[in-house]
Nucleic acid binder design. Structure first.
Lengths: 182, 182
DNA sequence: GTCTATATCAAGATAGAC
DNA sequence: GTCTATCTTGATATAGAC
């Protein structure tokens, strides 16, 4: 017999915000129910009156992340600089400024039934709609951007690699392609 | 007072091979010292006579993975088809055929002091030397390939996405660029 | 909505005997 | 080289009182 827990309450939002602080500051291994409770000044079991389980907590974080990435994309679209460059910069900046959050939202399969419908779609739509390329090209471009961000986060490029230049080369490649695309 | 354990013994290789089976079959959460020992018919503590700790075991797996990826690149270079396409196919195939191994070797920072010097370099050298592009372009291309593989493994593309086409678009983009490169 | 107490589980690793 | 026994740690989650 499982209790029904409302999806959105102030306390729940507070728990997710606290979880986010811990994740961003100390990484995923520090994100435990106990750590969240400690920071809120309560005991871990009390959390379960507000949120069903840890998985729900993580999906709450993913939801927030998609919302903020969407916000970043909207701001980039409004900027006056080259659109492709502006969107790429927004994406890269988000990843570098929120590495643990970025990993959380990209490193695993996503159970879309556990996040608010539309959260992911909005970010995807904003990123794709800006370009003239085909869907296939948009997917390839996303793969490039994700690869650049995650390999940088994982420190896989040589320490002296000029990643700004690698971004430029990649974007130049796709720009050429999209001008030829539908 | 720590015991010195030889880096390469038959038993050690056997342990790593067993660990690989478990990782590939059942994923990282199944890869425990106990599971490895069970499959070998011994007790977990006995493993520590042959390998220092679990981290060493994982780095042994990463080493094997780089060696095999290097082999795949060599085979691709010898093929008669378009080089860029052949290398990309080899990379993608490796990732899809060994998803857990691929994740293990790419998802984290790499402590290069714990793998055999040259293992990573060989794979990198084989992949880069084939192209005429700049280093920056090579890095962008790697990011594209990694992004395509890991997003496919994480099922992030729509189920009906035609990933062959996305690969084609991305490779076409980089090909155009490299023809203009140094 | 919070608490205490507890169930449950599982991991990596060491000591010391044989 | 393998064993048994054990240490140490830490996690998610539930029951039931207040």
């Amino acid at each position: 017999m499982s209790e029904t827990i409302p999806v959105s309450t102030p306390r729940r939002q507070q728990i997710i915000a606290t979880a986010r602080e811990i994740l961003e500051e100390d990484g995923p291994s520090a994100l435990t129910m106990r750590a969240v409770a400690d920071r809120l000044g309560i005991r871990a079991p009390s959390l379960y009156k507000h949120i069903p389980d840890k998985d729900a907590l993580e999906h709450g974080l993913i939801e927030v992340a998609f919302d903020e990435l969407g916000d970043a994309f909207e701001a980039a679209r409004a900027s006056q600089t080259d659109l492709l460059v502006a969107m790429a910069q927004a994406y890269r900046r988000f990843g570098l400024e929120h590495p643990h959050l970025y990993r959380l939202m990209t490193e695993h399969k996503l159970d879309r039934s556990r996040i608010r419908p539309g959260a992911e779609e909005r970010a995807a739509r904003l990123s794709i709609a800006s370009f003239g390329g085909s869907q296939d090209t948009a997917r390839a471009l996303w793969a490039f951007a994700h690869g650049m961000v995650i390999l940088e986060l994982n420190e896989r490029f040589p320490a002296d690699a000029e990643l700004d230049l690698a971004w430029q080369r990649g974007l130049a490649a796709f720009r050429t392609l999209m001008e030829k695309d539908t």
